[in-house]
Amino acid sequence: MASARRINPAIAALAWPLAALALLVLFNVVFTPGFFSVELRDGRLFGTPIDILNHASKVAIVAVGMTIVIATGGVDLSVGAVVAIAGAAAAMLVTRTQTPFPLVILAALGAGGVAGLCNGLLVSRLRLQPIVATLVLMVAGRGVAQLITDGLIITFEHRALSSLANAAFAFLPIPAWIAIALALATGLFARRTAAGMFVEAVGDNDRACRYAGVNDRAVKLAAYAFCGVCAGLAGLVECSYIKAADANNAGLFLELDAILAVVIGGTSLSGGRFSLAGSLAGAVLIQSLTKTLYMHDVSADVAPLPKAVAVLAVCVLQSPRVKDRIAALFNRGRA
């Protein structure tokens, strides 16, 4: 009865990051006093778990777009730079012009979308390798952001824009709601329409797709553009958080965190099947780990080490071969 034991792969992919998260939570319950103390202050919840949600949201928003791109068999290294561009655009608009706020948001998302389209065109039309194609914008994008801000840190006192990452709705920080809504909408669109299947099919075998009549170029283009828009959204959140656009540092190394979140979430870097819920869990896991290290005064020089070990452990446990070995162990025990 082997088939009866087979679990839904989407849920199986979630198991390891959630298990790691549970372990981390357990560790903090025992060793970090006050880690879970949450209180209500000015109509919003205030405490470390809320901070984790708030910071994880930024990574999660980028990771949603990244998941789709990775599922098509690509990768987008430019998201960090696009975050800087979108933040710079938004900050300049609210400080130098009287642009209405909805237009500011549209402009930032639009900037992200255009950046994503550039990546998409390089990948789908010119057939550049995704790592190379997006590396271009990763390097150049920060320069673009510097040009927009004239190399300065642009500080703003705009109520709507600064409340985006600092205010709460129904007790939870707004970025958390944005991340949840984005993931839900993306998930529904991917699973309720054929879009998700096209993405996975292109990631599995783009040539077969083309022969089957699926426009693989259009799918890839759309995936990169979507990823750009997500990065633009994260850019708004990032600049809102510090009420300033810091073109030099905004979104620095965010692409690594996003890719990590996707990989931890069980989406294979070789493309094909993807799990949005996994990516969200991955983002929360990374942020919880960072926060735990801060809370325990782990010096920043060595902090990446435990982080890397945890990530490696989750990835190793997810590899099919290790999974097979573990399953074999269990079966032997049962026999």
Binding site: L256, V263, A308, V311, L312, C315, V316
Partner: peptide, 26 residues
């Protein structure tokens, strides 16, 4: 096919971990 993929995935994960270690140098 699956074995090749596994190895590739693991390698990629290792690369990522390495990259994040290097990244903190800044």
């Amino acid at each position: 096919q699956t074995h090749g993929l596994t190895r590739r995935t693991l390698l990629a994960a290792l690369c990522l971990v390495g990259a994040s270690l290097v990244a903190c140098e800044k």
